[in-house]
């Protein structure tokens, strides 16, 4: 087996673990079934708000597309998890999307099958418990957004909607391998809520995340 192949497999596994954790967090927050676009919107928030918790953004960049964030790697991981029996296809119907028919799919974690896997993961020495806390908090905030507005929430995000980025261009929001810094307006905005807090109050990452997602909920519903 070649080194490249091993790296690909590692990346695939990492993506599957990430998807599993995201679906688990959403399920815990009451989002039992998540549509494809909502899933990618949630994945986007996990990327841009990770630095608020002192975590690295898993990807660090995103292609700005007309329809909203879309991660081909995570989409592929979802399919594989269905095959592995850890995720079920909760909905499979036709859907009229902008005049073109598309398959409308929603996914849900198979809690019973996935629980031992997640427990195993939690026991691994390199797994950062902050990740689970972050996903849990973000999922609760995401769940507060009305279901028909969740995919729009990403479109009104501070980074995604920043006027300086045109469609079909990569938005880089994590520092590059060359040591150069990139702006993450979403994380910056979440941290900025500290300015509005009383002097003796320090907002925790969870509070900053929650406040930022409340703002997204209001903007998406406006």
């Amino acid at each position: 087996m070649t080194e490249t192949h091993d790296l690909d497999r590692t990346a695939e596994t990492r993506a599957q673990v990430r998807v599993l954790r995201m679906l688990s967090a959403l399920s815990a927050a009451g989002v039992e079934e998540v549509g494809v676009q909502d899933f990618h919107a949630f994945a986007f928030f996990t990327e841009v708000l990770a630095p608020v918790w002192g975590l690295d953004s898993p990807t660090g960049d995103i292609l700005k597309e007309e329809g909203g964030p879309h991660y081909p790697m995570l989409q592929s991981a979802l399919g594989r998890l269905v095959g592995l029996g850890l995720v079920r296809v909760a909905r499979l119907t036709g859907d009229d999307c902008g005049g073109r028919w598309r398959l409308d799919v929603a996914f849900a974690i198979r809690a019973q099958a996935a629980a031992p896997v997640i427990a195993l993961l939690d026991g691994m020495p390199d797994e950062d418990p902050t990740v689970a806390k972050f996903l849990e908090q973000l999922a609760f905030s995401f769940a507060d957004i009305p279901p028909d507005r969740r995919d729009d929430a990403a479109l009104v995000d501070a980074l995604w909607s920043a006027a300086g980025y045109d469609e079909n261009r990569l938005i880089k929001f994590a520092d590059g391998r060359d040591g150069r810094t990139a702006r993450n307006y979403s994380a910056d905005a979440a941290r900025r809520f500290q300015r509005f807090a009383p002097n003796d109050v320090n907002l925790s990452p969870a509070e900053q995340t929650s406040l930022y997602m409340s703002l997204m909920r209001r903007r998406a519903s406006a």
């Binding site: 399919g79 269905v82 095959g83 029996g85 296809v89 909760a90 499979l92 799919v105």
Partner: peptide, 10 residues
């Protein structure tokens, strides 16, 4: 089930 349909489609 949906799962089987999904896997067969794949």
């Amino acid at each position: 089930s949906n799962d089987i349909s999904y896997v067969l489609l794949g």
